[in-house]
Design a protein around this nucleic acid. Structure first.
Lengths: 303, 303
DNA sequence: CACATTCATAGATATATCCTATGGATTTGT
DNA sequence: ACAAATCCATAGGATATATCTATGAATGTG
């Protein structure tokens, strides 16, 4: 079998099916009809002489061989995309569509500040933003569905490249009028784990808060998102650690939430930009990180 | 521009043109008509938005951008071929067509011994052999036109992987009846650079002989190949260093050439197997090297 | 100046890909 | 248990793409 018998389009179809685990959705993503996509997948399977997918008309599964083939297909497609950037002479720069993800406890608060910076620095890029949790975002990043992620460091950097941007302190967010207001200054040791409210599992902020407070999670109240968490504080359920960026102007829920800095070495998290180590646009990402570092949002500390 | 608009077939066409610098020959190699190939190349250039080749109806040149694109096209094709081996489940093994090159001063003398070993060890491979000089062979290797090379180490290993096989001593080849026959034993110091005959430039053996004898090449007689060199010795032009494998049975040119071992630490060269570091068949090459090491031709010394 | 070489063009044909419509199998909801 | 919904496969016809042969135009060569 000659390599010329393969089609990059078919590989894209196969990767789409592998990711969506659904022929119809994959077809939609590839902008073809489902029968066309089915036919091409079948042709590809014939060409390779193996079954890539197990179809049970109700669910689509990757065969074991299929998994290995899809992994390699992603490599082929990445190199082919790179060919296009080489041809454009824009290798190493950020142009065209650029998908940037951010963790949910950061994106909505950082993007309003960072987007103008990014737009100015990357006038030739179309930015596509998304949000998720660390684990999901890194999977999407590794699979090439997104190009870069803004998240809290450190992470498992296997196959990834990282640039630290700044240190974001945590503030104490407590119900207005809470007895903690009487203290002249607040340290982590003043917190009572029983009064702590957290995000649900999977959010890195949850784990960081637990570590900072030296507490364990058992039996603790939890919220599904940062805004829910804020409203739980407003409702008097307890207090929590709030990232500085999420505690800006007009975030007191009508005065029901109060924020306070910690004395001494404040808890917080390091925010960084992450991309695939294999991405040829590394210099562009490093430039971008530098710009973001030079224009940090108010309240951030340099790393 | 989407990656799906690219065709692997077109990339193969382009690589073929880049290598042959000739549309007709490239078409032949790709088993299509020349107009078809021309049309596809033109389409590819349109797709990429750049000119890959400069055609002056008399010669075909790669443009500067074309060079970068072809380099990347080779990467894409290599990864695509790898996809096929992954699908076949034969990754890491040597199957299918295997092109092996050897330097000219080694191939004709080593292959008769090594080929049976290789055939037995790789029953599923079709071996294609070629000969050349170190520089040319390594270029072909890097470009993927051949898969492995047998040559004299050390070499510049940038991007290549190497396994040493054995040490091949050099013998002294002198005209029968030469006065050196009177010496009870021979060392390098007994040689007179003025009587030395060498291969022409480009042969690694030439350089090795010069280094071994501590001589410079100026004004020296030279031969275009090892057999020519042997006949120059037979004709009494002088003596030379002959690789052990090239001095086997029946190589005395009717008794006109005599071979003699050197006393002490004999000069010689280390023979090794080289392949692309990026080649996924590395384990297969290492296995092959091990087999060749275990069954060295007579007179070779282990490394 | 005739001739060979070499890439491009033209027109016809074959192949590959795609779409819409529909079928059959399985799961879900009532 | 039965109707509805979901989902992949198949069929047939339309379109796009790739390929071939024959030929032309440009550039060197003897």
């Amino acid at each position: 079998m000659n390599v010329a018998g393969l089609s990059l389009r078919d590989l894209e179809y196969a990767v789409a099916v592998a990711e969506q685990r659904h022929f119809g959705k994959a077809a939609e993503r590839c902008a073809v009809s489902q029968p066309s996509l089915s036919a091409q997948i079948r042709k590809l399977e014939d060409t390779l002489g193996i079954a890539l997918f197990e179809r049970t008309s109700r669910r689509v599964l990757l065969t074991q061989q299929g998994e290995a083939v899809i992994r390699q297909a992603r490599v082929v497609l990445e190199e082919a995309r790179r060919l296009l950037t080489v041809a454009r002479g824009t290798e190493g720069t950020l142009t065209g569509t650029l998908s940037v993800g951010a963790i949910q406890t950061l994106g909505p608060y950082l993007f309003p500040h960072a987007l103008p910076v990014m737009r100015r620095h990357l006038p030739n890029a179309q930015l596509v933003l998304s949000e998720g949790r660390t684990e999901g975002l890194l999977e999407e990043l590794r699979e090439g569905r997104i190009d870069a992620v803004l998240l809290s460091l450190p992470i498992d950097t296997e196959g990834l490249a990282t640039e630290a941007l700044f240190f974001e302190p945590f503030l104490l967010a407590h119900p207005a009028g809470h007895r903690l207001e009487d203290l002249p200054s607040i340290g982590l040791k003043d917190l009572d784990p029983n009064e702590l409210v957290l995000l649900e599992e999977g959010h890195c902020l949850r784990d960081q808060a637990l570590v900072a407070c030296g507490a364990t999670a058992r039996g603790m109240r939890h919220a599904t998102g940062l805004e829910t968490l804020r409203h739980m504080v407003a409702a008097g359920t307890g207090y929590t650690l709030m990232p500085r960026l999420a505690a800006g102007e007009g975030t007191t829920v009508g005065g029901l939430v109060a924020y306070r800095k910690f004395e001494g070495d404040a808890p917080g998290r390091e925010i960084g930009l992450v991309w695939r180590a294999s991405d040829p646009r590394a210099p562009g990402f490093r430039d971008l990180a530098q710009r973001l570092r030079e224009a940090p949002p108010p309240g951030m500390r340099p790393v």
